Computed example of a mutant assay.
Amino acid sequence: MGGLMAGRVRLVDVAERAGVSMKTVSNVVNGYAHVQPKLRERVQAAIDELGYRPNLTARRLATGKTGMIALAMPEIDHPYFAEIASHLAAAAAAGGYRVIIEQTLNDPVAERAVLRDREAGLVDGVIFQPTRMATLEIAKLHDDLPLVLLGEVEAPVTTDHVMIDNVAAAGAGVRHLLALGRRRIAFLGLVHGDVTATNRQRLLGYQEALIEAGIRPDPTLVLTADGFSAQDAHAAVDAAVAAGLEFDAVLCRDDRFAAGAVTALRHAGLAVPEDIAVVGWDDTAITAYTAPTLTSIAPDKRALAERAFELLLERMRGHHGPGRHVVVDHTIAVRESAPAG
């Protein structure tokens, strides 16, 4: 490292090592798009070699920007959110930004802090999946902070919003099971105390697809769990089987619930998919490691993260138009638990 200590490396040191001007280094550090790719690579190599770390306070004073964005989500250990975070980090890095991740745990106080307190002065923009905040409160609190919302919450008219169509996706899952000849399709499921809109939309899509097929929805087939874990799903399926509930398929709220359902059915002596077909949701890494492997509704998580970052970048660069509502695609990733008919 040429005798330089990582904590003392300056912008001029990077410029000298890369053989470019300080302005070019500054453009790379700040993510300006007009830098030639080969030049950007040379500067980034010098940054990595010297261990240069931008002084965020100095950068903000000089440019009004920190080069940081925040991603606020309910659970960082949920496979779906973990994969969204990974895709967003890659998109942000390509755009010259770093990501701070914050977990809100569906706590309204923590959600308000994302917009009102904790991120003030630290980040240039926020990508946020709220579960408890109302539309008007979001509109009041985010003020001029560039913001993009994820998920099923209703967005203010001034705020960008990226999501999948949960009603349509649930309907696609049900139609896949109907095509396999299944008619007693359970929905797993509701969760005691859940306040989010996600499952209400998925339940609606499930019910509408059954009605469309001429099947009257049976409320006893809507299973309720005590919590959000695979163990909770396992317990809910155990209880349904023990009560003698008859069903030949299960549409699950996420892949964790689907994994719990598969295990519970196996313990009950029921074969998947021969006796009961199972469809998960989110198409996370879990799907490859269950036995059998899981068919899963697959939102385009990469497109969701990349589109959210694109919208946020436009806001951070001064776009002030009305909120844009973007719906990304979904498919069904077909595997062993509910094979193609």
Rank of each mutant, 00 (worst) to 15 (best):
245 L>T: 04
221 L>E: 02
232 D>S: 06
176 H>S: 05
236 A>P: 01
167 V>R: 11
159 T>F: 15
160 D>K: 07
214 G>Y: 07
161 H>K: 09
225 A>T: 08
235 A>M: 10
248 D>W: 05
225 A>W: 03
164 I>V: 15
181 G>V: 01
203 L>W: 09
251 L>C: 09
221 L>R: 04
209 A>Y: 11
185 I>L: 06
218 D>G: 02
218 D>V: 02
214 G>R: 06
205 G>V: 07
251 L>Y: 04
200 R>T: 13
193 G>H: 12
246 E>T: 01
207 Q>Y: 00
223 L>M: 07
158 T>K: 05
202 R>N: 07
197 A>H: 10
224 T>F: 14
153 V>Q: 13
169 A>N: 07
238 D>Q: 11
158 T>I: 14
207 Q>L: 02
244 G>H: 05
214 G>C: 03
196 T>M: 14
188 L>W: 09
187 F>P: 00
233 A>N: 06
214 G>Q: 03
219 P>D: 08
187 F>I: 05
210 L>I: 04
216 R>Y: 05
189 G>H: 06
178 L>E: 03
215 I>V: 15
160 D>S: 10
202 R>K: 11
200 R>V: 15
198 T>V: 15
182 R>I: 01
210 L>K: 08
254 D>L: 05
222 V>Q: 04
180 L>Q: 15
176 H>N: 02
231 Q>K: 10
251 L>I: 09
247 F>W: 11
226 D>P: 04
171 G>K: 03
174 V>F: 14
235 A>W: 05
237 V>L: 07
153 V>E: 11
205 G>M: 12
184 R>W: 07
158 T>V: 15
224 T>D: 08
168 A>Y: 08
253 R>E: 10
180 L>N: 11
194 D>F: 11
237 V>S: 06
253 R>N: 10
247 F>N: 06
215 I>G: 08
252 C>K: 01
168 A>N: 05
224 T>M: 14
193 G>V: 12
193 G>W: 10
228 F>K: 00
236 A>M: 00
187 F>T: 01
245 L>K: 00
163 M>L: 15
153 V>Y: 09
171 G>Q: 02
213 A>S: 07
178 L>T: 02
170 A>L: 09
218 D>A: 00
200 R>G: 13
203 L>C: 08
196 T>I: 11
256 R>T: 09
154 E>W: 12
231 Q>G: 10
197 A>K: 10
255 D>W: 06
227 G>D: 10
252 C>A: 13
209 A>P: 03
213 A>G: 09
190 L>W: 14
193 G>Q: 10
249 A>P: 12
220 T>L: 14
195 V>N: 10
185 I>M: 03
185 I>K: 03
207 Q>R: 12
239 A>G: 07
236 A>K: 00
176 H>Y: 05
223 L>Q: 01
236 A>H: 03
187 F>N: 04
162 V>L: 15
179 A>C: 03
235 A>N: 09
165 D>S: 08
166 N>I: 11
246 E>N: 06
228 F>N: 01
164 I>H: 07
164 I>Q: 05
213 A>R: 07
203 L>A: 13
178 L>G: 00
181 G>H: 03
158 T>S: 15
205 G>E: 04
184 R>N: 13
156 P>I: 08
205 G>C: 04
171 G>A: 15
185 I>T: 04
252 C>I: 02
163 M>C: 14
154 E>C: 12
228 F>Q: 04
256 R>P: 03
155 A>H: 13
166 N>E: 14
218 D>W: 00
198 T>G: 13
